[in-house]
């Protein structure tokens, strides 16, 4: 990807060059959309975020020119816009992340029945795990994570950013990103274990 041409591209878009607009949308559109959807978890909101981000991109070129790569600037603006969008629409009270983490006994052993502790669904074929019905439950699990945790998960595990780049996008420290990501994965693992793959075990 040639990033050196980006200030010129944006300038050309502002002058009405639709070809340049197509180039920039092709380069960043999917990434912005994936991240926006990953955080807001609904399509209309994601679309508004995408519009806001591109508009900001064209209006505030001076704000990042020469200081940071366009890619990381876009991650930051998108993450912010999506979190703000989500904040305005949060309908129900979120489950605190602590309630979704594994529980331990005083001696340091994990709490639960033997079947629950030993449940290992990691070898289940993806064909089954990602079939529509289970996929819906996976989506639901992601929906149930508090948004700041979900945002870290999307940046790191979906977009594949480093801890440092995710921290920059979120305006948080690297230790905060690591701690949130770990909690987000643990919470999602707990939800998946309970709701998706081993409901009979969780009930036992």
């Amino acid at each position: 990807m040639d990033q050196a041409d980006e200030p010129q591209l944006i300038q050309r878009v502002r002058e009405g060059d639709t070809g340049a607009l197509g180039t920039l949308m092709g380069r960043y559109g999917d990434r912005v959309y994936r991240l926006a959807y990953g955080i807001t978890r609904n399509e209309p909101d994601a679309e508004e975020v995408v519009q806001d981000v591109f508009l900001t991109l064209f209006r505030k070129i001076e704000g990042f020119e020469g200081r940071a790569a366009l890619g990381s600037w876009i991650y930051r603006v998108t993450t912010n816009a999506a979190l703000i969008k989500r904040r305005g629409k949060r309908a129900q009270v979120e489950v605190p992340i602590e309630d979704l983490l594994p529980q331990f006994l005083a001696d340091g052993h994990r709490q639960g029945t033997l079947a629950w502790l030993m449940a290992d669904w990691s070898q289940t074929p993806d064909k089954y795990l990602l079939a529509q019905e289970n996929r819906d439950l996976l989506e639901q699990g992601l929906n149930n994570l508090p948004e700041h945790y979900r945002a870290v998960l999307v940046l790191r595990d979906v977009e594949g950013l480093s801890n440092e780049a995710a921290a920059e996008a979120l305006g948080e420290s690297v230790p905060t990103v690591k701690s949130r990501l770990h909690r987000a994965r643990m919470a999602l693992r707990e939800l998946l274990s309970k709701d998706l793959f081993w409901p009979e075990v969780a009930r036992a």
Partner: peptide, 19 residues
């Protein structure tokens, strides 16, 4: 061991659920 395996699988599934 079961925890580690399912934790890693959770990470992979989250990525696969991407839009």
């Amino acid at each position: 061991r079961a925890y580690l395996a399912t934790y890693q699988k959770t990470r992979d599934l989250a990525a696969a659920a991407s839009r």
